[in-house]
């Protein structure tokens, strides 16, 4: 079978398009590269969506923790503590079990003319269930970054906004939020990188790979089991992830440059590798 044929069969295998059966014997290098690459689709899907939705929620949490009243501070702080203090792996397991139990407990809404209980079934699927966990997780980590940035906003900036008569929403929109983003951006870049790395956990943590449609590491693990040779599939995953990481760094540094465009070049903080963001 030619490599081009393999690309046609397997390049979209992870989302259920193409050949159903995975290669079993005489596995070629081409098959490994194509199928693992196909799995990357899932990693990108989880990473992009979790970050996209997480960004908004994280901003809300950070504002709640920094400026909220007693209760919203406690709620935001508790949420952040819960998701940053426990392993993502355990969160996946816990969420999966909870999603399984939900319909059994009887969260069935009988509206008289229509019964809504089908939704909870989707929660046990990785595409939704795992996405929710990743979303909550990245929200907590990003919120802590944003919270730190909010507290690091120079007092003068805030007072200048007051002096101009800005307050509430207008002050937040015009002064606090842009400054927060600018200060948080290097750390947030790292959070994004590790978010993509964390997506590899999904299919190893309770969420089943439906019809063997998994992410890059799922297929790499499959090949390592089948060929009993870890020295080919895992380096392939590694290369894919280095590419994803480089792309993330590129995209985020573009945004970072825009956030910092009004500053002289010696005042810009560049991304540095930090650990506080790992799970």
């Amino acid at each position: 079978m030619s490599c081009w044929q393999t690309v046609q069969d397997y390049s979209l295998r992870s989302i259920g398009i193409g050949e159903r059966l995975l290669p079993k014997a005489d596995i070629t290098l081409c098959e490994q590269i194509v199928l693992i690459g196909s799995g990357v689709i899932w990693n990108v899907y989880f990473g992009v969506l979790a970050l996209f939705f997480g960004f908004a929620f994280a901003t809300l949490l950070a504002v709640g923790k920094a400026y909220g009243g007693k209760y919203s501070q406690a709620a935001a702080g508790g949420f952040i503590f819960l998701f940053r203090g426990s392993p993502l792996f355990i969160q996946f397991f816990l969420a999966y079990e909870a999603f399984i139990l939900l319909p059994k407990v009887g969260l069935v809404l009988d509206l008289g003319f229509v019964v809504i209980d089908a939704q909870t079934r989707w929660l046990t699927r990785a595409w939704l269930g795992a996405l929710i966990v990743l979303f909550l997780n990245t929200s907590a980590y990003s919120a802590e970054i944003f919270y730190g940035a909010l507290r690091a906003i120079p007092r003068g900036d805030s007072e200048a906004a007051d002096a101009y008569g800005l307050s509430g929403w207008r002050k937040f929109k015009a002064v606090l939020f842009p400054t927060m983003l600018r200060l948080a951006w290097p750390a947030y870049t790292n959070e994004a990188i590790f978010m993509f790395h964390a997506t590899t956990l999904v299919f190893f943590s309770g969420f089943p790979a439906w019809r063997q449609s998994g992410d890059a590491l799922y297929y790499a693990n499959y090949f390592a089991d089948k060929t009993f040779n870890p020295f080919v599939p895992y380096p392939i995953v590694a290369v894919y992830f280095i590419l994803v990481t480089l792309l993330v760094i590129f995209a985020f540094s573009m945004i970072g440059r825009r956030l910092n465009r009004h500053l002289p070049s010696n005042e810009i903080t560049r991304p540095k590798f930090r650990f506080s963001l790992l799970r």
């Binding site: 590899t200 590491l217 790499a220 870890p230 590694a238 280095i242």
Partner: peptide, 19 residues
């Protein structure tokens, strides 16, 4: 560890070292 997820190493290392 900057570019590659740690889980990849965790799956790779034990079997690689063993072999």
């Amino acid at each position: 560890v900057r570019g590659i997820p740690d889980i990849v190493f965790f799956l790779f290392m034990p079997i690689a070292i063993d072999q």
